[in-house]
Amino acid sequence: MKPAMKRSNAPIFWGLFGAGGMLAALFGPVLVFVTGIAVPLGIILPADAMSWSHMHAFAQHWAGKGLLFVVVALFMWHAMHRIYHSLHDLGVHAASATRFACYGLAVLATLLAAGALLAVGF
């Protein structure tokens, strides 16, 4: 073991991964149900629940905006962290390249989500 111990920066990524995982567990299944089953088939929810005007209003409200942002951004950080470590398990050890690609995509998704939500206006 190396004598000088460098503090790991992993807590940042592990924190985003953990937050995304928690959110995915809480919201993931119900999102699949709402967007993929209930609304298209008109079960429980009205068929126009996800119409353009409804969703536009949702994305304009500060709470809806916030929810969309954390769902998109944190799901992405969660997924990219998992893919990064799975690549390592599969023997792809180009650490800095894969790390840059994975976390870079998460940064990109975060910025795009923020940009789009701001562009929708309040």
Binding site: M5, R7, S8
Partner: peptide, 14 residues
């Protein structure tokens, strides 16, 4: 904890 939190530490665990 300097060892646990280092680059050789707990965050290598998946």
């Amino acid at each position: 904890m300097e060892i646990a939190g280092s680059e050789a530490g707990v965050f290598n665990c998946t």
